[in-house]
Design a protein around this nucleic acid. Structure first.
Lengths: 149, 149
DNA sequence: CTATATTGGTTGCAAATGTAACCAATAAGC
DNA sequence: GCTTATTGGTTACATTTGCAACCAATATAG
């Protein structure tokens, strides 16, 4: 009787595991910004980009975070509605708008960013230095693999 | 002038990177089952569970894959509609239904599973054996951390 | 045994998302 | 220049999703 390996074992299937993990992590993280500021994932992401890179265009945010442009557009609109974000037309190209945070937006970011960073740090609490390094490295490689799509 | 570390660097922020990676991987993988069988992510997942664990209840699939029960319910309905899945009432508890694959469903699974497995294998091509092991282990740990929610 | 709570699963409705069409502004062809 | 193609961004529409309410079947309380 020949040994036939299971062709696909979900318990070890990377795409599946990655998806569940990403989703679990995201869900837990969302408590931080959802409860207090009523933000959804796309809004939080845009806020985070602005905190770090403002002034920046919607296009650039989309490219960096691989979010669809309509998602970015709507998140931007929502943040503006909440008074956290301000737009200012670019002089160089009047199609694009430079996005940045209002005072209120900056305050929200300054409140949330450290908490988010803390959360991410604690995720790695149980891991050894080696494990952390390998994890980072692996994610880097895989991400690069999928850069152009 | 004191050195103030950036509180949150998206470029290194694990939840963010994980999400982008999971989404990229999933997108690429989806070509395999979407093009040929017209399946979406939830349908593919249910199919994969049935191929490995059938007969199994919708509840169990949801618990294992952490999919919302409505998502499972609709994916099951869709697969049934496509003639890939069959339901049979349980004798022990007439609320639940035991799900399994039809001949057509089994054929689809037998076609897709090796391709999916192949895809996953190639994801790790660049990594050393050690790196793979550490990666698996790390994901395991993180997943366990989020088991109960 | 009867009344109440819980559970597997489905469905209605609202919110979130993706695709395609679109608009205005810039770039490229000639 | 002027005509056409491309680009940043928004919007309409269809599809997908999540939440809450629900239904029928089982389990629990008394």
């Amino acid at each position: 009787m020949s040994i036939r390996a299971k062709p696909l074992d979900l318990e070890r299937f990377l795409p599946y595991r990655l998806d569940i993990l990403a989703e679990s992590v995201s869900r837990r993280l969302s408590r931080i910004y959802k409860d207090k500021y009523g933000l959804g994932v796309p809004e939080w992401r845009v806020l985070a980009h602005l905190g770090q890179y403002a002034p920046i265009t919607a296009k650039a945010i989309g490219a960096h975070s691989r979010m669809h442009k309509t998602k970015v557009s709507r998140a931007v609109a929502a943040l503006e509605e909440l008074g956290l974000l301000a737009r200012s037309g670019s002089d160089e190209d009047r199609r694009e708008e430079l996005l940045s945070l209002t005072g209120k937006g900056k305050a929200a970011y300054d409140d949330l960013a450290p908490k988010a960073a803390d959360f991410a740090r604690h995720l790695l609490d149980d891991l050894s230095a080696t494990e952390r390094r390998v994890l980072e490295h692996t994610i880097d490689r895989l991400l690069k693999r999928f850069e152009q799509n």
